[in-house]
Design a protein around this nucleic acid. Structure first.
Length: 276
DNA sequence: CTCAGATCCTGTGCGC
DNA sequence: TGCGCACAGGATCTGA
C-alpha cells in the first residue's frame, strides 16, 4: 500500500489530529491486540507512555514517528497498514491509543506486515531499523544523479531494484519505481552499472518529481489506501505505466509491457524506455 | 559481499 | 454459488 507519498499523507493526517489542536493531547492508555506484526509489541513498553504528552510527528523513510516526552511511537504501514480516528473497533485492529481529548486512534493492518514499536527518545539514532537507511529524495539535497552514479558502482542489479533498495534511497516502492523509470526513459532491467551520469540525473529528478506530485495529489489509492480522514488518494488517476500492461503508452501508443523483476511486477513502455 | 527467491500474513478477484 | 489459485503498495532472511 504505502510508499513515501502515502506515508507522508498519513503523517500529515496524524499531525492534524495529534499536534494541531490548541490544547496539548496526552496518551491515557494504549491497547495492543497482542497479535504479531513484523515485530512483537512489548506490553511493558506500552505502559511507559501513559500520561505522556504528544509533542510532534515525523516521517523517516516509510516510518511514522510520534514523539512524546521521553518516548517515541514508531509505526510502519507495511502493505496494508492504516491509522484512523474512530471509536468502533474493527477486525485487524492492532493498536488502540486512547487520547485525553476522548478520541481513539487506531492502527489496523490485515496482513500484519507493519511495525509498531515504542522506544526511548534517546535511542532513536540507534534504532536498528533506522541505521542503514539511504537519503530521502524529498527531504535531502544529497540525493541526486551523482549520488546514484556513485552507489551504482559495482552493482549488477537491475536499476529498478536499486532504486527500491531502502539502503540506497528511501521511499520508492513498486509503483513509483515504474513511474520514475518511465519518466526518465530508462528500461527497468538496465543493469545499474550501465547508466550514464545524464541518465542518473534524469532518474533522480524523476523520482523527486513523481513523489512530490503524488504527495500533492494525496497519494495513490489502488485498492485500500486511505487517509486518516477516510478519504482516498488521487494520484492513481495520473499513473502512466503502473498497472497498465496491454494498454497503450500515453505518449507513443506502444503497448505497455510488464514482467516480474526481482519478485515485483514491473511496467514499462518498450518504445519510450530503451534497454542499454 | 552480492543477489534472487522465499517468507511473513489476509483479502480480493478471477476462472472453472 | 463455491472452490482454488494468483496476486497485492514491504522488508528481511536464507542460501547460492
Amino acid at each position: 500500500m504505502p510508499e513515501l507519498p502515502e506515508v507522508e499523507i498519513v503523517k500529515r493526517g496524524l499531525e492534524e489530529i495529534l499536534v494541531k489542536p490548541a490544547a496539548d493531547i496526552q496518551i491515557l492508555k494504549i491497547q495492543s491486540s497482542q497479535k504479531k506484526l513484523r515485530n512483537t509489541i512489548d506490553a511493558k513498553s506500552l505502559r511507559h507512555v501513559r500520561g505522556q504528552t504528544i509533542r510532534s510527528l515525523e516521517r523517516k523513510a516509510k516510518y511514522i514517528i510520534i514523539e512524546l516526552e521521553d518516548h517515541c511511537l514508531i509505526s510502519h504501514l507495511g502493505m496494508t497498514g492504516s491509522w484512523r480516528r474512530e471509536m468502533e473497533p474493527q477486525l485487524h485492529d492492532h493498536v488502540r491509543i486512547f487520547l485525553s481529548n476522548k478520541q481513539i486512534l487506531t492502527y489496523n493492518d490485515p496482513r500484519r506486515f507493519g511495525i509498531f514499536d515504542v522506544i526511548k527518545k534517546s535511542q532513536i539514532n540507534n534504532y536498528r531499523r533506522f541505521v542503514e537507511l539511504g537519503p530521502d529524495p524529498v527531504l535531502t539535497p544529497e540525493f541526486n544523479g551523482d549520488y546514484l552514479l556513485k552507489v551504482a558502482e559495482g552493482r549488477a542489479v537491475p536499476i529498478k531494484s536499486l532504486i527500491m533498495n531502502q539502503q540506497i534511497v528511501v521511499g520508492v516502492g513498486n509503483i513509483y519505481a515504474s513511474e520514475a523509470l518511465f519518466l526518465s526513459g530508462i528500461h527497468p532491467l538496465t543493469p545499474s552499472t550501465q547508466l550514464t551520469r545524464k541518465q542518473m540525473n534524469l532518474l533522480a529528478a524523476a523520482i523527486k518529481e513523481v513523489l512530490l506530485d503524488a504527495i500533492v495529489c494525496g497519494g495513490t489509492t489502488i485498492s485500500d489506501f486511505k487517509h486518516t480522514s477516510g478519504s482516498s488518494g488521487g494520484f492513481q488517476n495520473f499513473l502512466l505505466v503502473y498497472g497498465k500492461s496491454l494498454e497503450n503508452c500515453l505518449f507513443c501508443q506502444t503497448v505497455i509491457q510488464s514482467q516480474v523483476i526481482v519478485g515485483r511486477n514491473s511496467f514499462w513502455c518498450p518504445e519510450c524506455q530503451t534497454l542499454m
